[in-house]
């Protein structure tokens, strides 16, 4: 299951979608909004997201296909927010089921790492005194 949504992410639904009877481990990564940008020494008020939705879904499918093959994933679900989020709110959930726990940890990490590198989703940080598209400039 892949879902890009401007509604609050229901974490339990993502987990439910990744359950499978042949799995002995279900690993979940939840990305949340951090309150501070360390390098800029600025307090983050909220985040806004934008996605190139059809391509984002295609790129997530490609990442999942590699992971499914490499770690023998039994079931998986990914949901990413496209909403305006406040500090502490959920930006992304990745849930992966495999037969044994080690593969579920590795697959989950692989998927979030690849998502952050390849999937066309952009995050804007809103500070108390301005805003900035994350990672746009050196």
């Amino acid at each position: 299951m892949i879902k890009l949504t401007d509604k609050p992410i229901d974490v339990s639904k993502v987990i439910e979608a990744a359950k499978h009877p042949t799995a002995g481990g279900l690993n979940v990564f939840i990305g949340t909004v951090r309150d501070f940008h360390k390098q800029k020494n600025k307090r983050v008020v909220r985040l806004e997201f934008e996605a190139y939705e059809p391509m984002a879904i295609t790129e997530i499918q490609k990442i999942a296909a590699v992971a499914i093959d490499r770690w023998d994933i039994k079931a998986w679900a990914i949901s990413h927010s496209l909403a305006k989020l406040n500090v502490g709110e959920v930006a992304v959930v990745i849930a992966v089921s495999t037969a044994h726990r080690k593969a579920s940890f590795e697959a989950c990490q692989f998927i979030i790492d690849q998502l952050k590198e390849k999937v066309p989703i952009w995050k804007k940080e809103i500070f108390e005194d301005g805003e900035e598209w994350v990672s746009a400039h050196p």
């Binding site: 984002a56 930006a91 952050k116 590198e117 066309p120 989703i121 952009w122 995050k123 990672s135 746009a136």
Partner: peptide, 10 residues
């Protein structure tokens, strides 16, 4: 055609 500046999802 689309321009993809540095992505920052997650």
């Amino acid at each position: 055609i689309a321009l993809i500046p540095p992505v920052s999802g997650g």
